[in-house]
């Protein structure tokens, strides 16, 4: 559940965005700029948050009127070990230490649905966090670090599976399916792809983030569409984009089928006029953009 500190939309004077180079960060930056809101978009090359010297630079940079969006993290493809966990916590420590010294008007922390137990099939914001791996532990710990900041309005966003153009990750789902279809002419599923998941387009994630900035929203919000589809369905949608036959291959199931549905009532309450990009349309968009790029 989130609460809007601004009943009416009100542009923050400036947004400081950590993790701006990534797939999600780029999309958020783009939509912030569309709103004509000044943004400082920092990449890890410009400011290494894992470096202890980062705090001093951040203190000099931040203004009490800034809205801060913290996206920077080493994702699981960079490592799932304890060392990666500790680096990620150090990054958050730097941001929190700087905010404690400089203050800010709003902190949006980008967490993950990895904070929930993977066995839970229906998720709301009230679902107890119970991370099953170090990546989930990292995000949940960073959420608590964010909330420990006194006098700072904090919003935690927990996005589910994000897809979209420019995704550099190759997680199981629409992006990987599209690459596989394009490169190999086939999509390989785990089992029969029976598992249902909620796939949210990166532009929706960015649009919701901007809305939260405009309303200075606080609390915790799952970023999901509320509609789950099977991986098989996602594969079929991807295959449909190609003018040639794309083979969808089932494999012997190694793990039991699990499902994940999001009850997005709180999101509807927060933004009752928000319209998600349907996964059918989103997959078509991604494909079209990829084809244009080639």
């Amino acid at each position: 559940m989130i609460t809007h500190q601004n009943g009416q939309s009100q542009k923050p004077t400036r947004v400081v965005l950590f993790g701006a180079r990534g797939f999600i960060g780029s999309a958020i930056r783009e939509q912030i700029e569309v709103q004509d809101i000044p943004v400082i978009a920092l990449t890890s090359a410009e400011l290494n948050l894992a470096d202890v010297a980062a705090v001093g630079r951040l203190v000099a940079l931040l203004k009490p009127s800034d809205a801060v969006v913290m996206l920077a993290a080493l994702t699981p493809d960079k490592g799932r070990d304890i060392a990666t966990l500790m680096k990620n916590l150090t990054m958050m420590q730097s941001v929190c230490a700087a905010i404690e010294k400089s203050a800010c008007a709003h902190l949006v922390y980008f967490s993950s649905d990895a904070v929930y137990d993977t066995a839970v099939s229906r998720v709301t914001e009230d679902t107890p966090a119970s991370p099953q791996d170090l990546y989930g532990v990292m995000h949940y710990t960073r959420e608590i670090m964010a909330r420990s900041l006194v006098k700072v309005p904090v919003l935690v966003l927990r996005p589910t599976l994000i897809y979209g153009s420019d995704d550099t990750h190759n997680s199981y789902g629409p992006n990987r399916f599209r690459r596989a279809a394009q490169n190999d002419g086939k999509i390989t599923l785990f089992g029969g792809g029976e598992e249902t998941r909620d796939h949210v387009h990166v532009d929706d994630v960015a649009a919701l983030t901007v809305r939260c900035l405009l309303h200075q929203s606080t609390g915790t919000l799952n970023v999901a569409t509320g509609i789950s589809k099977s991986f098989l369905k996602a594969a079929e949608l991807v295959a449909k984009q190609f003018n040639r036959n794309i083979e969808i291959i089932s494999t012997p199931r190694q793990n039991p089928v699990t499902h994940r549905h999001y009850d997005v009532t709180n999101l509807i309450k927060a933004f009752p006029d928000f319209r998600f990009i349907a996964v059918e349309e989103g997959i078509a968009r991604v494909h079209k953009k990829a084809m244009e790029a080639t």
């Binding site: 009532t265 509807i268 309450k269 928000f274 319209r275």
Partner: peptide, 14 residues
């Protein structure tokens, strides 16, 4: 919240 969710699905999001 059934009515809100249904309204959203059928009307508000469309």
């Amino acid at each position: 919240d059934w009515a809100l969710r249904t309204l959203y699905r059928e009307i508000l999001s469309r």
